[in-house]
Nucleic acid binder design. Structure first.
Length: 424
RNA sequence: GGAGGGAUGGCUGAGUCCGGUUGAAGGCGAUCGACUCGAAAUCGAUUAGGGGGCCAAAAGCUCCCUCGGGGGUUCAAAUCCCUCUCCCUCCGCCA
């Protein structure tokens, strides 16, 4: 969330930001509550100050064996009053916090302005979409024909939007996980972590998935747990409520996890195949960095995610999301979109964001600057490196052959026991 | 599941029985300084976080809050009571 004082002092900017994101959020209520809150706070503090003073005097008198009855009687009243006001104070505080929690992050000045997807900006492209002498088939046809994908039976087990991989398909999924983890740990300096797949409300609040996006999550009944929709949630919260040493930064984690999403409101979208599932695997990159380096780190993070696509020889483009498409917590986001011949379009396969201190403030993740100095919030970033299921889609569709077989990208073959081709 | 023991500053660790200059000893770490050609070692000093007010702002001054979370007792709570969460030890069960 944003800093309370920042919002107070930059109301016009915050209002403009809300407009740019295409949001109708009224800040008048915030302004009113903020003023009221401080008013009550001043009152309470004054009373508490007298209480402290007289208490000290009582202790003093008692030590000398003098009577304290009148002071005690006086304090009884003051304390009652304090208690009453503290109730009011807590109410105001909560209301204020509640409002602040649903204000999205400020976009970075470099973020393109606009509300629709058309305002997104292609920053660069890599690779050439393959040319086929035949009509390329969608991945679900290829996968089912090759016997590596069984969506019918997955539906029987769980329902729509689930996948069952078989044989070389399962192996391909696992190979990709390992390939990506190896790349990021060996060459990009990430530390591998394997986090819980359930997390509590506090953690979800920390990454700003709650309170606003509850409908996208699977909640575990009779518990405080939600299934993670991305490793971002547990991994970012590794350092929740910590004060890190400056020398420890930057911290880089890479995590493979399954991800679980309700996909409520996406009925009719991507209903076939592996594009949009309730459960999918993803390798996620997460960084904790010093504020002054976070935009360099975002560029680096994006390149690190791109490296996966490059090694796999998949054509893609990098898109800077416009203010209207930007996620709630993000200050700047690059989407990586891979070319999918079966769909004849580029589709998102990674999303790399700089949240600046938005998540760090919620999750209370700070660092102490070198030399003395007040603790500051770190900047957090994350990006997919990559979504595994969609990578399988891209490989199947881009490397398909006229005879229905699929070549395996060379970089991946060591992870497939040298297998060069998926065929019947 | 049963029985106990814990949670204190960046870390470690006293204080809790017997409530009152204890926001909190000592140690480690960090920062600054001395010594040194430099470093190490040694010595000295500094060092919890958050919030409000004054101030154009920084600095500064001042007040308030915080000893895992919440509630209670009391004029007054790190300290007493209740409750929740988490950690540890033992027993049982278990992938």
């Amino acid at each position: 969330m944003l800093d309370l004082r920042f919002v107070r002092q930059h109301l016009p900017d915050v209002r403009e930001m809300l407009a740019r994101r295409g949001l109708a959020l009224d800040l008048d209520e915030f302004v009113r509550l903020d003023a009221e809150h401080r008013e009550v706070l001043r009152e309470v503090e004054q009373l508490r100050a007298t209480r402290n003073l007289v208490s000290e005097r009582i202790a003093d008198l008692k030590k000398r064996g003098e009577p304290v009855d009148s002071q005690v009687a006086e304090m009884r009243e003051v304390s009652a009053k304090v208690k009453e006001l503290e109730g009011a104070l807590a109410e105001k505080e909560q209301a204020l916090e509640g409002l602040l929690a649903v204000i999205p992050n400020m976009p970075h000045p470099s973020v393109p302005l606009g509300v629709g997807g058309s305002a997104n900006q292609v920053v660069r492209s890599w690779g050439e979409p393959p040319v086929f002498a035949f009509t390329p088939r969608p991945h679900w046809e290829l996968g089912e024909a090759l016997g590596i994908l069984d969506l019918q039976r997955a539906a029987k087990i769980a329902g729509a939007r689930f996948a069952l991989y078989r044989g070389a398909g399962a192996r391909l999924e696992r190979g990709l996980m390992n390939f990506m983890l190896d790349l990021h740990t060996r060459e990009h300096g990430y530390v591998e972590v394997l986090p819980p797949l359930l997390a509590n409300r506090t953690s979800f609040y920390g990454t700003a998935n709650l309170p606003k996006f509850e409908e996208e999550l699977f909640k575990v009944e009779d518990s405080d747990f939600y299934l993670i929709p991305t490793a971002e949630v547990p991994v970012t919260n590794i350092h929740q409520n910590e004060l890190l040493e400056a020398s420890a930064l930057p911290i880089r984690y890479v995590a493979w996890t399954p991800c679980f999403r309700r996909e409520a409101g996406s009925y009719g979208k991507d209903v076939r195949g592996l594009i949009r599932l309730h459960q999918f695997n993803k390798v996620e990159l997460v960084k904790f960095v010093m504020p002054e380096t976070s935009y360099d780190e975002l560029e680096a993070l994006t390149r690190e995610a791109e490296a996966v696509l490059q090694r796999l020889g998949l054509a893609y483009r990098v898109v800077a999301l416009c203010t209207g498409d930007l996620g709630f917590a993000s200050a700047k986001t690059y989407d990586l979109e891979v070319w999918l011949p079966g769909q004849g379009d580029y589709r998102e396969i990674s999303s790399c964001s700089n949240f600046e201190d938005f998540q760090a403030r919620r999750a209370n993740i700070r660092y102490r600057p070198a030399g003395r100095g007040k603790p500051r919030f770190v900047h957090t970033l994350n990006g997919s490196g990559l979504a595994i299921g969609r990578t399988v889609v891209a490989i199947l569709e881009n490397y398909q052959q006229a005879d229905g077989s699929v070549l395996i990208p060379e970089a991946l073959r060591p992870y497939m026991d040298g297998l060069e081709r998926l065929s019947l």
